[in-house]
């Protein structure tokens, strides 16, 4: 674009998108946690019911959903460290951009360690 605004330090850049992702993943994890506490607590009042709910966790579609959930947790957790470093490390703000890509790189690495193992567990039993 010819007359693109010179831009800001923030809008449309890594700073903004990391914030958007952090927020979306935080909300997703929160709602999962609400359900997860309840489905786990079910074990206290209805053990057979608990096994029935866990059977749905073993289906391929929840298995895929859980893979996505772990991806969200990986990003949120690692980007959380980035936020903490920006706040407390003297050079944090200077390196926030690089740190974002380190977060993405580490998240992909850890996800590559997790996903095959989990997906094999899921798909070898259906």
């Amino acid at each position: 674009m010819a007359n693109r605004p010179a831009g800001t330090l923030y809008r449309g850049k890594v700073g903004m998108w990391s914030w958007v992702l952090h927020r979306i993943t935080g909300v997703a994890i929160f709602f999962f946690l609400l359900v997860h506490v309840l489905d786990t607590a079910l074990i206290r009042i209805d053990p057979a019911g608990y096994d029935a709910v866990m059977a749905t966790y073993k289906t391929w579609y929840i298995g895929l959903g859980e893979t996505g959930l772990v991806a969200a947790i990986l990003f949120h957790a690692l980007n959380g460290v980035r936020i903490i470093l920006i706040d407390f490390w003297r050079k944090g703000a200077k390196f926030q951009n690089v740190m974002f890509w380190v977060v993405i790189g580490l998240a992909i690495l850890l996800f590559a360690g997790f996903a095959p193992r989990h997906l094999i567990n899921v798909f070898s039993h259906i």
Binding site: E66, I73, R117, V122, H125
Partner: peptide, 16 residues
């Protein structure tokens, strides 16, 4: 996550 999903049979081993 490691203890429940990575070790052994992972998700498939979780029950009562």
């Amino acid at each position: 996550l490691f203890a429940n999903l990575m070790v052994g049979d992972g998700i498939h081993a979780i029950n009562f």
